[in-house]
């Protein structure tokens, strides 16, 4: 298989890698870059565990080819961690984490929402997160954790 030269920016770093063209973005992030915070829950666009930000939009990395990220900016949960994104701490504080497998995906989605709509209401949060599955928490504390990071809640 002919390799493809992928150039993109991941968590602020410029990356150039030769990859197989049949690689998904999820495989590229987890296997080639070793960024394992992005999870695979279903591999078919149904759970949201694999969400990453691509030029600021939350995308299902399991459904995209890595090549589609060419020339774009990717942010993963590791990137949010490095910049001390308040969502991470809020999830831990609000008991929104149980098994944790779905959580990075929720945080990515919530980050997308709050950067577009920093004062999102609870209903808007609920609606925006309705594409992410969590089997453990019953969602309530997740909604609460995101709510606490709204602009008006951060002093």
């Amino acid at each position: 298989m002919k390799k493809y030269l992928l150039k993109c920016q991941v968590n602020g770093k410029n990356i150039e890698r030769e990859i197989r063209p049949d690689k998904t973005l999820l495989e590229f992030i987890r296997e080639d870059l070793g960024l394992t915070g992005t999870k695979e829950g279903c591999g078919e666009g149904e759970c949201g565990a694999c969400l990453d930000l691509l030029d600021g939009r939350a995308v299902n990395s399991c459904l995209m080819m890595a090549a589609q990220a060419h020339g774009k900016k990717i942010i993963t949960i590791e990137g949010l961690r490095d910049e001390k994104n308040p969502l991470i701490d809020s999830f831990a504080k609000e008991a929104a984490v149980q098994c944790g497998f779905c959580i990075p995906g929720f945080i990515i989605k919530a980050e997308e929402l709050l950067s577009e709509n920093p004062e999102a209401t609870d209903d808007e949060i609920k609606e925006s997160l309705a594409g992410n599955l969590c089997r453990c928490t019953g969602y309530k504390n997740i909604i609460k954790a995101v709510g606490k990071v709204r602009k008006k809640c951060l002093k």
């Binding site: 070793g34 394992t36 992005t38 949010l80 991470i88 701490d89 999830f91 929104a96 944790g100």
Partner: peptide, 23 residues
């Protein structure tokens, strides 16, 4: 006491290693 979960922060930050994260 409702203390914080000891594993929450690592899980939320994507640090925890699940089975497929090990190589």
């Amino acid at each position: 006491k409702s203390v914080r979960r000891v594993d929450a922060l690592d899980k939320a930050a994507g640090i925890s290693k699940y089975g497929s994260d090990l190589s």
